[in-house]
Simulated scan of single mutants.
Amino acid sequence: MVSLGYISEIWNKYEDPRTAGKFLMENPPTRFFGFIISYVLFIHFGPTLMKKRKPFELKLVKSVYNIFQIVINGYYGLYGLYYVFLTHNYNYSCPSLAIGNDEYAQTIAHLGHIYFLSKLWDLFDTIFIILKKNDRQLSFLHCYHHMFMAFATYFIMKFYIDTSFCLVAVINALIHSCMYFYYFLTTQNSEVKKSITWKKHITHIQMLQFTVLSIHFLRPVFNTECNRPKVWDIFMSLQILFILYMFIQFYIKTYLVKKNSNKKKF
């Protein structure tokens, strides 16, 4: 059995010194994994515990939460866009690893850590779903997407933070800012929540996001002059394509199949 001491030794040996010691980046990674295990247990037991209880009224809590998400994602996305892509020469066909102690590399690591924490904050979406007993929203796609983003950002921050990850973070943050603006509107106006158009557009931009990011990670793979680790880019592109596939399946099931079934009723 692998001991915590062995894991800590591996973590210390290969960790990125720029993120060592930051919040939830400590060795051994007991606090991070404890957080994730608690999340998984709540997903498993939460619906059962809520079965005989009334749904929680979380309008005020969700409104504050959504506003915070709009602000933090909007700020991060715009600042990251300006700093990483507008003030520096970003190479889209072979992104820089940005490894070192210079200001640029340190800023990349700092921005990445903020993004990592925001992905843990996103897990509260699942908690709200369970507390409000919206079981239909508790899908495999929802849980997998949130879990993957939490794990991926943790390991990237711990071992391999580079500029290509910043592109993921910037695009994702800007889209999340729009998405949480929609969620905020639904807490204020029930008619917005009933609008299929809003939901479809949110799904459209999410699918567009994963399409762009999958292409972005595949470009260095086919660039023979790029010396980035190919295995890493292939892994990320495959994971993103898998999530895109699930979003497409969700889109077909939610908007195309239901639309056709409604037509047949008439």
Rank of each mutant, 00 (worst) to 15 (best):
D162Y: 02
E225A: 05
F250H: 06
S190Y: 14
T19E: 04
I129T: 02
L213I: 14
F250R: 07
K52C: 00
I127E: 04
L167H: 03
T163G: 02
K193M: 10
H110L: 14
F181N: 04
D233R: 03
Y39M: 10
T187L: 09
N27A: 15
Y83M: 08
Y154S: 00
G21R: 03
F128K: 04
S177L: 13
P220F: 03
P220Y: 05
Y104V: 14
I7L: 15
D102Y: 02
L117K: 04
K133L: 06
S8W: 00
K22N: 10
R219F: 13
Y76E: 02
W198A: 09
M157C: 15
I108Q: 03
K158Q: 09
F85P: 13
M157S: 14
L238T: 10
I43P: 00
D125C: 11
N189A: 07
S139N: 02
N260P: 00
D135C: 00
L111P: 10
Q249K: 12
L256N: 10
E57K: 12
E9T: 09
P55L: 10
S177V: 10
I161Q: 08
A173T: 08
N189D: 15
H204D: 15
A98R: 09
H145T: 01
Y82P: 00
T254V: 02
W198R: 00
Y183R: 13
F242W: 09
Y183H: 13
S195H: 07
I37H: 04
F85T: 12
E103Y: 13
G112E: 08
Y255V: 11
K52D: 12
Y115Q: 07
S261P: 02
K13F: 10
D162T: 11
F124C: 10
L81I: 04
M147K: 01
F159N: 07
S190T: 13
L241A: 15
E103K: 15
Y79F: 15
V40A: 11
F42P: 02
L78S: 13
F210Y: 13
H88L: 03
L24S: 08
L131I: 01
C143N: 10
S164T: 06
G100N: 06
W121C: 11
K263I: 05
I129H: 03
L60F: 09
I36D: 01
K54Q: 15
F56E: 11
I215K: 05
T126E: 01
F116P: 01
H176C: 02
F210S: 03
L241R: 05
K59C: 01
K263N: 15
Y83L: 07
I99W: 05
L111Y: 12
I67A: 11
Y79D: 08
Y92P: 06
E191F: 01
C166E: 11
G77C: 10
G34W: 04
K51L: 05
